[in-house]
């Protein structure tokens, strides 16, 4: 199923201030595509995904404008009951911090089977058998023991895999994975990435893959969008972004990856930090940290402009190119 986010603009209303968390997000994830959303901590990746799921508490969240179109329907126009039938079944989500997002007093088995019973009308035995299959699929062999375990009895990585198992239990047609491999070691990460690729093949799911790890994104995605301070600043097919990043931010991100070869020297970092949603700098939001900032950058927010095939970037440096 295709997902299109159009001009999604969202604020958090605080008593004394307003945080402009998303400033007109545009994002299209085609059916069967793995679209990665990368950016630093606090740039708005999780807010984007939870907004798509319709899970942001309102207040404080307020959607100022925009559309979220899943398989042709604008889900923002649906009422809560209609959205509930979509969640878990058509669109599912894997969260960033599994130990927080699993119920501590419910056995893993129950946390998986309850969705199957609710959405697919399975009985207990069917649901348990299906749960065992899914656990096996996510690499939690010996599923019977896992079914009977409580979250705290599993290691960080096992919890994350259980979380993925819950999300894919109903074969959703769209999956949002918010840092699904952050807690995993490389061998399991590889296994999960393979699993996600595999699921995409089988179910032609669209997948929004959120990560801050550009190495992981490199291995899994078809297309990459870079988000900064609540705005997409560059979007390109994977190979283009890695070989010829246009936006200075994308470029610096790529350079700051630690590597055995860089041993002994300090890593390249991006000075400063992501602005708070309450204090987005005027003009290009990246200008206080950008080594190439010009006068115009402080005044005018650059628009997304094409700079290659299916490749767009928002930076004044591209103005002079054409």
């Amino acid at each position: 199923m295709e997902l299109a986010v159009r001009n999604l603009d969202l604020s958090f209303i605080q008593t004394t201030s307003e945080g402009h968390a998303l400033r007109g997000i545009n994002l299209t994830v085609k059916e069967g595509e793995i679209h990665a959303l990368v950016g630093e901590s606090g740039s708005g990746k999780s807010v984007t995904s939870t907004a798509i799921m319709g899970l942001l508490p309102s207040p404080p969240a307020r959607i100022n404008s925009g559309e979220i179109i899943l398989g042709g329907t604008d889900i923002l126009s649906l009422d809560e009951k209609e959205r509930r039938t979509i969640r878990g079944q058509k669109i599912a989500m894997v969260f960033q911090e599994p130990s927080k997002y699993l119920n501590p007093t419910l056995k893993i088995g129950e946390q998986i089977t309850e969705v199957l019973k609710l959405h697919l009308g399975m009985d207990k035995e069917q649901a348990e058998n299906r749960a065992l299959e899914i656990l096996d699929m996510v690499g939690l062999g010996g599923g019977k023991r896992i079914l009977k375990s409580y979250p705290h009895e599993l290691s960080g990585g096992m919890k994350q895999r259980a979380m993925i198992a819950i999300a894919i239990s109903c074969n959703p047609s769209f999956l949002i994975a918010d840092e699904p491999t952050t807690a995993l070691d490389v061998t399991l990460q590889l296994q999960i990435l393979k699993l996600i690729l595999n699921l995409r093949e089988k179910l032609s799911m669209g997948i929004l893959f959120i990560s801050h790890d550009l190495r992981v994104v490199h291995d899994i995605s078809d297309r990459v969008s870079v988000i900064y301070a609540g705005k997409i600043v560059e979007t390109a097919p994977k190979t283009d972004l890695y070989s010829q990043p246009v936006h200075p931010y994308s470029n610096l991100l790529l350079q700051s990856i630690p590597d055995a070869d860089k041993r002994g020297s300090r890593l390249i970092t991006i000075a400063g930090k992501v602005p708070d949603a309450e204090n987005i700098p005027p003009g290009c939001a990246f200008h206080p940290r950008c080594p190439y900032a010009m006068d115009i950058c402080r005044e005018k927010d650059p628009e997304m402009k094409p700079c290659g095939e299916n490749h767009l970037a928002a930076c004044h440096l591209t103005d002079n190119r054409n």
Binding site: M53, G88, N103, P104, V115
Partner: peptide, 13 residues
């Protein structure tokens, strides 16, 4: 708590 968000994401009533 966050696990309640998970429960919502699952489409539970």
């Amino acid at each position: 708590k966050e696990y309640i968000i998970t429960a919502r994401a699952k489409g539970l009533t």
